[in-house]
Write a protein that binds this DNA or RNA. Structure first.
Ligand code: SF4
Ligand code: SF4
Lengths: 132, 132
DNA sequence: TCATTCAAAGACTTTACATATCCATAATAT
DNA sequence: ATATTATGGATATGTAAAGTCTTTGAATGA
């Protein structure tokens, strides 16, 4: 189990959009070029962020993507959930009693990770030198 | 990103071995049947646990698998690492400065999860009713 | 000694999903 | 109108998980 590359792209793109001027949208060409990924593929990923309500897209000349919310509210978990989905990392088809202790351990572990990702805000990384 | 089914099988198998008598090895047929998985496939998974030093295998008639360590020492993390590997969940090819803040956040989140999985011992589940 | 029982290991197939690419369509600025 | 830009569908490719098959080798016990 690994985080997908799509999540990596989404995180870096969001970091760029947070640091960019909110007035001027950034084209997917720019966003893609700096990450070494094809624009069409990145576009598909960003559409998921649009649907999650984190960014908005502007069609036409001088269009692109920009934040649609307050940048201070955007957490790592928001982005990861938008890309990877919100399903539990440990899935079991059976239901052996309503409190399965194996699932309880696994889900609690996941919660610990999510709790940290929810506290980590994108805007906190700006002063630090995370580029590309 | 999801935990693999192999991890699910490994956890359940280990739980059975912990609750079984340590003297008598349990055949892979038994272990596989109760989980609805093919014996040959489960055998491949268990070989990884053998190589990790958690269980041992006995060939020949009346053979099978049994614990090779004190059952109190076996944690969820041990099993998960043996199956999924120990590589970081978030991988990035580049190295932008020795302290990348994106990776710092992701790796710290992973640590939180691992910390919980390291505290969770298999033997603690025995009195609770986790079966199959 | 010999047949039986069991795990280990390698080759292989199948399935699922991530990672793209291509193209047609729609929206918008100039 | 025309150029520019995102969207969405279809499709292709790659890769890892999931599972099967078969051979080999180790231990038992008859
Ligand atoms: S014991 Fe829990 S994890 Fe295991 S099969 Fe039952 S419900 Fe699923
Ligand atoms: S900023 Fe960090 S995560 Fe992003 S490409 Fe550089 S090293 Fe990798």
């Amino acid at each position: 189990m690994r985080f997908t590359k799509a999540t990596n792209y989404a995180l870096h793109t969001m970091l760029m959009l947070v640091s960019a001027s909110p007035a001027k949208p950034v084209s997917v060409q720019k966003l893609a070029e700096s990450q070494g990924v094809s624009p069409t593929y990145l576009s598909k990923i960003l559409t998921r962020l649009v649907k999650a309500g984190m960014i908005e897209s502007i069609s036409g000349a001088n269009g692109g993507y920009r934040l649609s919310r307050n940048k201070d509210d955007i957490t790592f978990l928001d982005i990861i959930h938008a890309i990877e989905g919100t399903a539990s990392l440990f899935e079991c088809n059976f239901v052996h009693g309503d409190e399965c202790s194996i699932q309880a351990v696994m889900k609690e572990a996941e919660k610990k990770m999510e709790s940290h990702l929810r506290k980590a805000k994108l805007v906190d990384l700006l002063q630090k030198g995370a580029n590309v």
